[in-house]
Each structure stands twice: as structure tokens, then as C-alpha cells.
Design a binder for these strands. Structure first.
Length: 214
DNA sequence: CCATGATCATTA
DNA sequence: TAATGATCATGG
């Protein structure tokens, strides 16, 4: 397995800025919506390939891997603004209780993230142009880290005192704990699948990250 | 089977 | 329009 550093990944990705991701998806054999079903994750998968990754096994970055994230941007007036929040990582209630912010998956992913701004052209977007690639260096903004940590601590505290079910997307100034379950009904049992959650970066955080990286 | 990819739908 | 909660296809 080949190791791709963040710098290499960024270099690879930058070569694709301005290109249509849908065409690239076809080249790499990634299903988009061609089959009649839409794959909501296809942009992320394409970007991972473009960065030089073979496949993404991104759970628990054991040291020297990085996270690749895409963010949908839409044009508000003349300014590019994040359309939506961005998933960071799944929340494991046990680990959330056990780990402080700087020991968490959330942080270890956040600090090694490579952001890709992708133009969003509406529902079931057929084309997706790669707008910009940025990596994050949080070391240059202590204040922001502190505030993110505060959100993490708040969410962790709430988990301990009120339980996993008490968490909502309302919590947190920069990050939030939104639901991210598999959703739907288990066709075998007919039961509802358990609700899971993930850390999300709010749009304001995404915007700030791109400002820092610029 | 389930975590991961990220978007879609609904409501205030 | 923005924010929150819910959802689906994919890959290992």
C-alpha cells in the first residue's frame, strides 16, 4: 500500500481544480447516479481516488493518514458560502466519555483534514466542479481551537449527565452532534435502526477554515 | 453487517 | 433561508 502524504494529496487534487467531478467519477468507475439510484457519497469517493488513495478505510487514523472531506458550496450573491455542514467523524459514546478533546477521533481527524470545495449545482447535481483545495493548520489559530474544544467538552458533559439521546444538533458553536444513522427500517427485523450520531462542522466553521487556509 | 461517504427533507 | 434531523448507496 502506498502512503500518500497530505502535501502529495493536495498537489494531486490541485491538478483537478476546475474539472468536472462527474467525468472523473466515470473514469474511476465510481457510480454517481447513473444507475438510477443516487449515491450521496460519490463526490467524496472520487476525491479520495484523485488524491491518490486506493480506497478509504478511514476509521481511526492510526497516525499518519489524513482525512479528505468535500464541502458543497453554493453561490450567495458573489460569494462562495458553504451550503451545508460537514461530517467529521462518528461519535462513539464510550470513547467520547473516555477521551479528552485532544485524544479524540474528532480532533485527530480535524487536524489532518484536507478540504475540497465542490460547487453544488442543486438537487441531484449532475456536474460538480472542484473549486478549491485547502489543508488546515490549526496551530495558527489557538483561539479557534479553544472554542472548538469547548464545544466538544460541552457535548461530552451533556453525554455524561443526560445521556446519548439528549444530544442534539443544536449543541455547539462550531461543531455539533447531529444524527447520522443508517436510517430507515431494517428490512429483516422490521425494527428501526438505532440512532447514531456524528460530529459535524457548522458552516461558519467551514467558512473560517477556508479563510485561514487562504 | 455496519461505518463512512455526504445530501435530502422538513420545519421554524 | 438557515438549521436540524433523517436518509441512502457504497465498500470492506
Amino acid at each position: 500500500m502506498k502512503i500518500v502524504t497530505r502535501a502529495t494529496a493536495m498537489k494531486n487534487l490541485k491538478g483537478y481544480i476546475g474539472q468536472d467531478l462527474r467525468k472523473l467519477a466515470l473514469v474511476h468507475g465510481i457510480t454517481t447516479y447513473e444507475t438510477g439510484k443516487q449515491n450521496k457519497g460519490w463526490k467524496g469517493l472520487v476525491l479520495e481516488r484523485l488524491a491518490g488513495l486506493q480506497t478509504n478505510v478511514s476509521k481511526a487514523p492510526n497516525g499518519l493518514t489524513y482525512e479528505l472531506k468535500s464541502v458543497a458550496f453554493r453561490c450567495v450573491c458573489d460569494e462562495l458560502t458553504p451550503k451545508e455542514t460537514m461530517a467529521i467523524t462518528m461519535i462513539n459514546p464510550e470513547e467520547l466519555k473516555a477521551h479528552s478533546f485532544f485524544e479524540s477521533h474528532c480532533w485527530s481527524k480535524l487536524k489532518t483534514i484536507v478540504f475540497c470545495a465542490v460547487k453544488w449545482n442543486g438537487k441531484n447535481s449532475e456536474a460538480a466542479e472542484l473549486l478549491k483545495v485547502a489543508s488546515l493548520d490549526f496551530a495558527e489559530d489557538d483561539g479557534l481551537i479553544k472554542e472548538i474544544k469547548a464545544d466538544y467538552d460541552f457535548i461530552r458533559d451533556k453525554l455524561v449527565s443526560e445521556g446519548f439521546d439528549a444530544l442534539t444538533g443544536k449543541d455547539g458553536k462550531w461543531i455539533q452532534a447531529r444524527t447520522k444513522g443508517i436510517g430507515g427500517i431494517n428490512p429483516h427485523t422490521g425494527q428501526r435502526r438505532p440512532v447514531t450520531r456524528a460530529f459535524y462542522a457548522r458552516t461558519s466553521l467551514v467558512k473560517k477554515i477556508f479563510e485561514i487556509a487562504s
